[in-house]
Design a protein around this nucleic acid. Structure first.
Lengths: 82, 82
DNA sequence: CCCGATTTGTGCGTATGTATC
DNA sequence: AGATACATACGCACAAATCGG
């Protein structure tokens, strides 16, 4: 599965910083086309469960992706791939 | 602009305690009218980045400003100039 | 027009580990 | 040894925006 709209299992070699690990993973999925532009990501709190990190960590990762222009977040609606 | 709702750059002569430096800076901005009453400050975690200090230091600075009656913090809403 | 569900936004309190003074 | 500060991270509570019924 590979997409962030359908949970499965997660993986990661526990490399360093949690928020970077998450940000890089999502960025890779966008780059690979797995997450197409316009696609809505799962809710931040769901991503937290998916990645097994806290909500705050997801918010950090999202902030990074926002700065990179990879995603766009709308209050009350969700987060979308740019 | 120089407001805490739109980042720019910052600089400081590393004078003494970090939380006092931050508190004094914000107090000065309020005193100068740069931050008008009712204005909402940026999120504490953003202020941490802005001032290049840790989140805990921002919380400490905010506590001081609250005691001085310069700001008012509302859970879930934000911090406002009194 | 209001109500409730969903989702993002913000603040609160705390913990761990590291570095510096 | 102790105090100050930083960086990261967790979990929770409350608030606000959006959408559908």
């Amino acid at each position: 599965m590979s997409d962030l709209a359908a949970p499965g299992d997660h993986n990661g070699p526990e490399s360093g910083l949690a928020y970077l690990r998450v940000a890089d993973d999502i960025a890779a999925r966008i780059a690979s086309g797995e997450l197409a532009p316009g696609t809505r990501l799962r809710a931040e709190r769901e991503l937290a469960e998916y990645y097994e990190v806290s909500y705050g960590t997801i918010r950090r990762a999202a902030e990074i992706l926002r700065e990179r222009g990879l995603i766009q977040t709308i209050h009350g609606r969700g987060t979308f791939v740019s």
